[in-house]
Write a protein that binds this DNA or RNA. Structure first.
Lengths: 353, 353
DNA sequence: AGGCAATTGTCAACCGGTTGCCATAAATTG
DNA sequence: CAATTTATGGCAACCGGTTGACAATTGCCT
């Protein structure tokens, strides 16, 4: 029917000539139709609308497809339908290990359901993030935003277009996956109180971080409950260096225990305090947040409030899948538990001298 | 229900965008054509074939495109051309920090050139890897394999279809990005020799790892040169736990310094030796490989041979871009330098007692 | 056997951008 | 000024899978 174009161009057409498909392109539903002796549209239905064709024809077509080693052309499918079998995942910083478990959780779950994952990084910038998100929207079926930096409104706008799931932040009207910090924090605070600490400092994360605010709130409440004094200190950046930089302020605060916004801060802080001659945990207890890769490499290994980040990634992906296939608009918030991981960096305060 | 489209009106030109509702469907080149008063094909040319249309028309079209906030439909473009502006990246293990920097390097470089990155994981399995690669081939313009586990032949077969770049391994006939271990290793060995060590152990990685073999070879050569005795020990897995498990063998070997296949092994080994009461580096020196995230969290911080992994990722992406646009068959091997990062885990041996 | 509904397959029109071919307008040249 | 080359825009046929509309086939009853 359709005569294949045979451009016997003698002149080299392009440099990528080597990889050009020379006549032998991939099998299409038309090829299958020919082999099975049916119409292409029947093939299409057999392959994507189970039940629409008779069992006999179905088998015929499936056999032909298997024989030809057929696989759908995702682009040809995406063009009329818009379905791409692809999810987008945007993280603030690819080198931040916090996101690696999230990425892995999302990737694993997506692959399991025959979706692929597109990755982008916002470099901690709301503008870059929005740009990346906009660009992705065109080519994905749904989007996961891990610790997004952009406005709630921007997120809602995106979510009107296609399913969006947010990790590590609550946005009204958008499905979210959020670690419930209270359990882990209260465990941590109780543990500190039990070890005789009276004044605890919180080293905060970026001002615009929703999660940092939640953690500070949770800690203040837990301290009140345990009758501890809580002070809040600012950090410059939520990184190892940021932790180093905040060390002086921590010492000056007079607190004997510190809870930090994340593990990186805790590690940097511990390094700097130790370099200044302080002994952890004898003179000061340090508790991190997230339990990232490497949190147990330190000496002493870091006590930390674990967020099940992998679960967040796979939970968000599952939410997205549910939103797309079948079931309506559950949305709402998926809460995952946090817990204290007690290691060596926290403990009883030794009396000075 | 949409009304049946049976336009016997002969004047109908192009797909009439009847219900082009804002928000629902994006502007197309047909919309631009209408605004600019030209033919859709002219719009297509103006947007993708610079110079093919007059400057005047070009401007007209660009203005219209900007006004409508147009962006190409990648699927519609991919269908006839096969070009997708997408790269695939397959790593063995997403949680292995070795790949963090590779992913980031690739992502950054790709985004910079308006490509997006699709990520897949092989879970250290050659079969899963090949499956993932096959699936990706259909939807990407090129593929990056980081530390692939599959056969050389499988890789070459893939490479016949579309551009493929391999990281951390040499495959004949396929462009590769490989850290040149010799410089870093010889620096490490010389440093150990200078500190009085006479016998050095190498803790190997997975048997099928090409890179592990290179590192062992490099070390043996360097030791010969420095007149040191070199012994090779096997590990179970190239992870922290694998490092712990090999600790006993290391002690029994009588070596006073160890070079490990990667940092994870080194960290696990160091933890286990320290737990057994040995002092690092006074009683044994430990040198890792790669300088992954967290290598400096340990006490003492890990001395390691740094592989510029981010460079590998971005180098591979650049190679892919070169292969696609313009220049034909550079292929060959891109070597990147390694260097010793001297930290606290290696040093002079203290005389016993 | 005739009538009617339920199944199953076919036709053709999309989705949106690309590109070979051709007609025409513009520029160059003899 | 005519002839030829060249630059430019238009036409239409793709890419491959999807889907509404409809025809053909089958099954079931009376």
């Amino acid at each position: 029917m359709t005569e294949p174009k045979k451009p016997d161009a003698p002149a080299a057409t392009g440099p990528a000539k080597k990889h050009a498909r020379e006549g032998k392109s991939n099998p299409t539903i038309y090829d299958i139709a020919k082999v099975a002796g049916v119409n292409p549209s029947t093939v299409s239905r057999a392959l994507s609308k189970p039940g629409r064709v008779s069992a006999k024809t179905q088998k015929l077509i499936e056999d032909a497809a298997a024989e030809l080693n057929y696989q759908v052309n995702q682009f040809a499918r995406a063009l009329p339908t818009g379905r791409t079998s692809t999810f987008g995942l945007i993280v603030a910083d690819i080198t931040n290990p916090t996101f690696f478990d999230i990425i892995r959780g999302a990737e694993t779950t997506a692959t399991l359901r025959d979706y692929t994952l597109m990755l982008a990084e916002s470099e901690e910038s709301a503008v870059t993030e929005l740009t990346a998100a906009r660009r992705m929207m065109a080519t994905v079926d749904g989007l996961i935003l891990a610790s997004p930096r952009m406005d709630d409104d921007d997120i809602r706008t995106l979510a009107r277009d296609k399913p969006v799931v947010v990790i590590n932040r609550e946005v009204d009207g958008v499905p979210c996956v959020v670690p419930d910090v209270n359990k882990g924090i209260s465990e941590a605070v109780r543990s500190l109180a039990a070890n005789g600490h009276r004044k605890v400092a919180f080293v905060a994360g970026p001002p615009q971080s929703w999660m940092s605010a939640r953690r500070w709130e949770g800690m203040r409440a837990a301290c009140e409950w345990s009758r501890l004094e809580a002070v809040r200190l600012d950090s410059t950046k939520p990184t190892v260096n940021g932790g180093r930089e905040v060390a002086r302020v921590v010492r000056d605060s007079g607190a004997t225990a510190v809870l930090t916004y994340n593990d990186l801060l805790a590690i940097g802080l511990m390094q700097e305090l130790q370099a200044a001659g302080m002994v952890v945990p004898d003179q000061i207890s340090i508790v991190g947040f997230d339990d990232i890769f490497g949190a147990d490499f330190t000496t002493p290994p870091l006590t930390t409030v674990r967020s099940p980040l992998g679960e967040c990634g796979s939970g968000a992906t599952t939410l997205l899948l549910d939103l797309l296939h079948g079931m309506g608009e559950p949305a709402g918030i998926l809460r995952v538990e946090t817990e204290l991981v007690l290691r060596g960096s926290s403990g009883r305060l030794l009396p000075p001298g």
